[in-house]
Design a binder for these strands. Sequence first.
DNA 1: GCTGCCGGGAT
DNA 2: ATCCCGGCAGC
Length: 355
Amino acid sequence: MEAERPSAPGPGCGRPPLRAAGRDPAAAPVSVPAPPQGPAVEFALPQEPEPRAADLGAPGAGAAGPPTPSAHIPVPGHRAPPGKARLDEVMAAAALTSLSTSPLLLGAPAVAFSTEPSLEPWREAPVRPPGSGGSSGDGGWGPTSDQSSPSTPSPPLPPEAAHFLFGEPALRKRKSSLQGLFQCLWKRCGKVLSSASGMQRHIRLVHLGRQAEPEQSDGEEDFYYTELDVGVDSLTDGLSGLTPGSPTASVPPAFPRLEPLEPPALPSLLRPPALPPPPVLSSLPAPQGCLAPVHPEPQPIPVRACAPALPAKPGANPRKPRGDAKKCRKVYGMDHRDLWCTACRWKKACQRFLD
DNA sequence: GCTGCCGGGAT
DNA sequence: ATCCCGGCAGC
């Protein structure tokens, strides 16, 4: 008895596959409208290639072409020939420059998710490439470090690598030993001094509001100034000119997150509480490609405020017009729900009574 | 309000 | 994958 009824509709179904097929097309259009939004955000990610290349170029000079294994930034423990070091400096600076300059790069991470300082943003951020860049990009720090110190006894990780990975802070420090000017990155300060110590003092006193306590300096000041080297000057300068705090800005943010790489080195440096107004950080999202490029101040920074507002779906999924045919529900009624086709039972598009 | 069914959650 | 339901939208 029961078999009869159900059987009728069952086999009589006709062509469920058709239904499905028809549906797919419907779905297609849906995915089409979506792109407008998705791409905007996702496209930013593609940046990886760029940063990666740059990074490779810097740390693994090998990529650059010069078959100089030594140029690999050996940085065993001390320093290489002055000339080489200088070259590296320039290359690094150039790499950083290109990185920080690239609008896509900056925009990408921030646009993706900016509100939350979670790892995500930075993960995707250009910073990651460096790490994975070493390898094929499978997100493996192991490989990279291995290459860096194939036979070096250095346990933690070569300072140079750290510099490149982390970006400015470290790099800057190192550079400072060379020469050049130091420019304060603090919002609308831009003060330029000829000595790092002077700059640090300036930042400590003027911006951090700390009394002179250089001995205790946790290095925080390092984040607030950059060096304008004679050689690299042009590069750095140009960057600072664009955004007083952007050149390095692109990297610093990620810095604090990479604790694993730099444990005892500068723990205090990463200390978040110590940073009242993270100028560097804020400057990063801002310039992203919106309006104000430079505003290293305690600002809420509606990160994607500038982003092409794509909140809801514009006209993404024009619901498929309701079919005229009566469906199981109507035919059998709620009383005989068990007679409905599964689709109807599941509140899906009826498979029995196709339109 | 009824109905069809999309989108998504639960298992 | 299967089952179910919230909720939207056409009627």
